[in-house]
Write a protein that binds this DNA or RNA. Structure first.
Lengths: 104, 104
DNA sequence: TGCGTATTTCGCCAAATGCCGAAACACACT
DNA sequence: AGTGTGTTTCGGCATTTGGCGAAATACGCA
C-alpha cells in the first residue's frame, strides 16, 4: 500500500494536482490524514470518482495510504505541495509570500 | 501581451505544468528569457505545438511574453515554480531540500 | 509597398481524462 | 459462514488534450 519502487516524476505530480478536486484533496490532507468517505464529502462526487482521483495522486507519489481497520487513511506524502499551493493562493490574491522551509 | 486582469487559478497552474514539454520550458525560462525558436529547439516539436504550449502557460499566468523587435520573448512569471520543481527533482532522487525563499 | 522571418491560429484526428453506476473486493463483527 | 460497511475496479460515454501541417498574422527592413 505504501510506495515501494516509486520514482517521483515532476510532470506527473503537477498533472495529478492539476484538477480542482485533487488539489482540494491534497490541501485537505495537509491538515492530517483522512479516509475516502471524508474526502468524498469534501469534493462531493461519487465514490468511484474520488477513489480514482486518489489513485492518480497515489501513483504520482503525492499521497500514501494505509489501511486502518475497515477504512483506508490517506496522507500527504509531499508536504512541499501544501506550501507551494499556498504560494499560488497568495499569488491569486496578488500578495507576496516568504516561506522558510519549502520542501519535504 | 502582459496579463491584465489575470487571476491565478492554482489548479490551472498545476495543469499547465503537468506536461513534460511545458515543464521543461518553465525550467528553461528560470534561467532567463527566451524566444519561441529557442524553446522549439529545446523541446523538439513543431512551431505550432510549442506556441500552443506557451499559450497554455501564459493563460495560466506561469509565463509572460513581450515583443522584442521581430520576436516574442517569454519569461517566467512565477519564480516559485522553479523552486518547487527543484524540490520535486530532489524528491525524485530521494533527497531532502530546504529552501529559504519559496515564492515570488 | 513588397519580402522574409517569427509566431499564432485553424482544422483535423488520435489518445487521454473525468465521470458515473454496477459489480467486485476486503475486512470487521456476529 | 453470513452481513454490512468502506473502497476499488470495470465498462462505457462525453469531453478535453496534444499533436501536426497549412494558412493567417505581425513585424522589421529594403
Amino acid at each position: 500500500m505504501s510506495p515501494k519502487g516509486l520514482r517521483i516524476d515532476p510532470a506527473r505530480v503537477f498533472r495529478a494536482l492539476g484538477h480542482q478536486a485533487r488539489l482540494q484533496i491534497a490541501q485537505a490532507l495537509s491538515g492530517g490524514e483522512l479516509c475516502v468517505s471524508d474526502l468524498r464529502e469534501l469534493v462531493g462526487s461519487s465514490w468511484s470518482t474520488v477513489s480514482e482521483h486518489l489513485s492518480v495522486l497515489r501513483e504520482a507519489g503525492v499521497v500514501t495510504s494505509t489501511k486502518q481497520g475497515n477504512r483506508v487513511a490517506y496522507r500527504l506524502a509531499l508536504p512541499c505541495v501544501a506550501t507551494f499551493t499556498n504560494c499560488l493562493l497568495a499569488a491569486a490574491k496578488g500578495k507576496q509570500v516568504e516561506v522558510r522551509t519549502c520542501c519535504n
